[in-house]
Each structure stands twice: as C-alpha cells, then as structure tokens.
Simulated scan of single mutants.
Amino acid sequence: MKIFRKEILVFVIALFLSANVTSQSKSSVAESDVKIEKQEKRKKKKKRNKKVKLPKIDLSHWKVTLPVTKENGKPFEISPPEILDFAKNEKARPYMYIDSTKGAIVFHAMPTASKTSNTKYTRSELREQMVAGDNNTNWTFKQGGKLSAKIAMDEVTRDKNGKYHKVIILQIHGRLTNEQRDLIGQKDNNAPPILKVYWQNGKIRVKTKVLKYKGVSDEAILHKEAWGDDKGRTFEQEVGFRKFNIEVDVSDGKMVVSLNKNEFFVYDSFSIKKWGVFENYFKAGNYFQTRDEGAYAKVKFYDLEVTH
C-alpha cells in the first residue's frame, strides 16, 4: 500500500513538473512572438520614415545640354518647361537623373560623338536662362549675380598616370549681343568664359580670363583672341568625394568665389573691370575634360540657386 502511494506521489510530482515546463515553454514562445512582432513593427516604421529625398533645385530657368546627339548631329538639349519633367525623359535618364536616396541630381558625362561648338569635350550641363526658354536675355557684371551650390563628386575615372580626370562643375560664360556680334563679323554670339571652376584631384581650382594687352580698343576687346587664361588658383581645403558648398558673387568690376564660406578668392583686376562689356550666364553640372576611351564622371548637385 505504501509503495502504491509512493508511486502516486511520484506521478503527481512528474505531472506537475511537466505542466510547469510546458507553461514555461509556451511563455517562451509567446515572448519570442512578441519580440518578432516588435522587430517587424520597427522595420515598418523605418521604411515609413525613410522618405524619398528630392534635390532643392528649381529648374524653371535652366536648360540642359546632354552628351547624346539629335538626328541633326547636334547635342540633345531640354529647355523649360520640358526640363521640369526630365526624370521621365528617356533621352535624359542616363545622363541627368535623380538620386532619391541622397536628394541630388546626378550629371553623368563621358566622351561621345556629341559635343558643342567651340569645344572638343562633352557635357551634361545646365545653362541659365533668365527668361525661360530664351538664350537672348542675359546679365552684365553691373547688374550682378550670385550663384550658390552644394555639390559632391560621385564617381570619376583616372588617366594613364593615375590622376583623376578633370571636371568643370561651374562656369560664367560670356556672350556677345547681336550688335557686338555683327560689329566684329562673328557667326555666333559666343564669347569666352570669364570663370571656370574645376574639380581636380579632389580639390577645387578656379580659372579666369585676362586681357593680353591693356591698351586694347573697345572693338578689339570683343574678340576671343584679346583674352588669355590666368595661372589659376586652387583652394587649400581638399573636398575629395565629400559634399562642399561653393558661392560665386559678381558685382560691377568684381567677382568673389568662396569654398565652404571659409576660403575666398577675390577678383577685381583691370581685366575683370573691362569684362563688363559682355553679357553673361551661369552654367552648372558636368563638363568633362577628357576624350580618353572608357572615361566618365558623375557629379551630384544637392542645391543650386541663382539670384540677380
């Protein structure tokens, strides 16, 4: 009888322990389910918070030239208002597109058969239009202008010596009025660029035009041959492939170029003062400075603003 009771007692204890283990197991499974559910909720929340970023750039007063040709062999261009929907344009998509993860417009250029007049290089580059769709309304230094931009070099190839290929990221281009063009018998309105801003081996380099002879006449000064290149100046800070801010501020007889509001190049020479004879327009993007086979560059613009 005692043995029988002992067996019952052992059975009851075993049953209790089994029930307790089962309960703990169920509790552990329930806790695991809760953890998984919380993780899923966190993932969904992160996805919701990861919004599409769009660049802070108004293109309503810009046209773009792309490194691809039209049927007539000239570079493909998109002007306002069509440029506002450039992301939907199949021709533009490989060369000018939005990086929605970074909030930037990417300008992609490489050597192709497509190039603009007066140059051997190709570009994916914006051209300012003060009047949307019109190239004939521009500004003078007396009227002034200011450009501010946030830029980063995204990708760029190297030359045979291991140096990165050069890219012009900003310009101020000169332009003849129709009267000036006719006066000197030139076939187009093109004048030299007074400013070129380069990304060169991770640094920002600035080049301008200077008069070859100070005594040049009012008519002769309109010719490209009257102007030469200065030696150029390079900012000390290395930007590499990081974002950087650059500003160009133009006023009567003066031009200031600054990098990250920390370094400043001031141009107020005799040549800059004489440049007031020309009209001008800003350019921004990727003007790729090589014809090397297989070379390319991608430049990201996060912000771009112009005021006059």
Rank of each mutant, 00 (worst) to 15 (best):
M1N: 14
I3H: 10
R5P: 08
K6F: 12
E7Y: 10
V10C: 07
A14Y: 14
F16V: 14
V21E: 15
K35I: 09
I36S: 05
K38V: 10
E40Y: 09
K43W: 01
R48K: 01
N49E: 08
P55V: 01
P55E: 01
W62M: 10
L66T: 08
E77Q: 11
E77R: 07
P80C: 02
L84K: 07
F86I: 02
N89E: 10
E90Q: 12
E90W: 14
K91A: 07
Y95C: 01
Y95P: 06
Y97E: 08
D99A: 14
K102A: 14
A104F: 13
I105L: 01
A109W: 04
A109V: 05
T112Y: 04
S114V: 06
T119W: 03
K120R: 15
Y121H: 12
Y121S: 08
E125M: 02
L126P: 04
E128S: 14
Q129P: 00
A132Y: 11
F141A: 13
Q143V: 15
Q143P: 00
Q143N: 11
G145L: 01
K146G: 03
K150L: 10
A152D: 12
M153A: 07
R158F: 10
K163T: 12
V167I: 03
L170I: 14
L176G: 03
N178I: 13
E179Y: 02
L183K: 02
I184Y: 06
G185A: 07
K187R: 06
N189A: 14
N190K: 08
P193S: 12
P193E: 06
K196N: 01
V197N: 00
W199C: 00
N201S: 09
K203L: 14
V206S: 04
K207M: 09
L211Q: 04
S217Q: 02
W227N: 00
R233P: 00
T234G: 02
F235N: 00
K243W: 14
K243V: 13
F244R: 10
S251N: 01
S251H: 07
K254T: 07
N260L: 14
N262Q: 14
E263A: 10
F265D: 09
D268K: 10
F270H: 15
K273R: 11
W275T: 06
N280H: 01
Y281K: 05
A295C: 12
V299I: 11
V299S: 09
F301K: 09
F301V: 12
D303C: 03
L304W: 13
E305Q: 00
